[in-house]
Amino acid sequence: MTLRTGSTTEESRAPAAVPPVRPAPKKKQKNFDGYWPWLFVLPTLLGVLGFYIWPIIQTGYLSFTETGPFGGEEFIGLDNYQTMLADGNVGQALINTLVYTVIVLAGIPIALLMANLVNQPGLKFASFYRVLFFMPYIAMPTAVALVWRMIYNGDFGILNWLLSLVGIDGPYWTSTPGFAIVSVGIVGMWASLGFGIIILGAALKNISPEYYEAAQLDGATKWKQFTAITVPLVTPSLFFVTIISVINGFQLFDLLYAIMGQYNPALVQSQSLVYIFYNQAFIQNDKGYAAAIGMLILVVIGIVTFFQFRMQKKWVNYV
């Protein structure tokens, strides 16, 4: 409550359709915070360098070598990358990974709407609904995959049974190329909604009710309030959820494997980049080539993330 008293001039402008924008960083006004920041970041930085960056550098090096199955490598320059460019499976996997990521991203607006619904003031059973929505996020992939396989089963699944009631002859969801990656994407979306709802729900609670009250006085509809107040004010969290969803989407592996199963004729057309990495590194024992695919994943996500950060100035409003 103390916060509410510390009002600023900006506050009196509420409710603005676009919330107050953070003042531009005061560049001229020096000044570094001395050694303090290093105390804060050094432990993390050292751990990250030792446990993560070093492996990435090693992987980068391996991608220019041909490796023996149990170590020992020979420098071969760009050969692995040339093989990769010529490998149709890699291109297909990149497309599949993108399709999956887009489907998971499509879950973000749904998560926002659901978070909005469940965060309405005075809603009864709100915590109950929140727990329901969150449950898929707790799920262990191997356990839910079995259930989803039963739902998707082309001959005996309930999804096709429901469709047959309305006269639609459903496909073999998980074993038809094209359908398969979409089916996996829907499970991915289902599993990650809970994450979006938590983060976005927290952000929603940050919005002062005064904005809405004022908007109501102006006669704004619920939808107008949602688009003009809610969405702009949660953009930092939306930005965060988007970045994380893209990164997680690109790491599709367990879920694909668990849902499609090992006897799937569509597996080759439906594999993801990480799937190819895993297959090359641990099944085919070609760690050099696998490393090149690992670097491809890093570069693709890196580029996408870089542009997201560049673009954020256009749509993300920090308070």
């Binding site: 492996p55 790491q251 990495f277 690992g294 994943i297």
Partner: peptide, 8 residues
Amino acid sequence: ILMVPPQV
């Protein structure tokens, strides 16, 4: 480091 699959 988030951008590299954990298997790496």
